[in-house]
Structures are given as C-alpha cells and as structure tokens.
Amino acid sequence: MNVIINGAAHELPSGATVAQAVQKLTEAVSGVAVALNDEVVSRGAWSSTTLSEADRVEVLTAVQGG
C-alpha cells in the first residue's frame, strides 16, 4: 500500500505500522514525534498503530529556530 511519509509516497506492506513508517527515515526513537493524519501518535503506540492506504505520516524533530 501507498503511504505518504513527510510528503513523499512510500510503498509499505499492508498492515504496516507507524513504527515501520518511522524506520523508513530514521532508527532514532528519541527526539522524534509522529502525527498520523494530523493526530499525535505517542511513542508507545507506534508499533501497535497500523496504517491504511493513503495515510499521511509526519515525522518531526527539533531543528535550529526561534
């Protein structure tokens, strides 16, 4: 299935989880937060939250700013 991760299309196996989507970008688990379709998914729920076709996953971290 196709999932949008940080604005780019990625092919993931059906039943893939948020944790698998994050691993497309980084191995890091600290300093990173995830929104699935504009709702925060807490770190503890990454591996139990499954994705659906065309879901939008945002993976954010802190950068220089302010």
Binding site: T26, A33, L60, T61, A62, V63, Q64, G65
Partner: peptide, 17 residues
C-alpha cells in the same frame, strides 16, 4: 533556549538537541 519543530531530514548530521 528555543528550537523549532520540522520534518525529520534523514540526511542531516548532528542535532541542535
């Protein structure tokens, strides 16, 4: 000290954190 939140960039090295 403030930081901003942005999409994770897999190519960036080192972190303000």
């Amino acid at each position: 000290t403030t930081v901003a939140m942005r999409r994770l960039d897999p190519s960036s090295r080192g972190s303000v954190l």
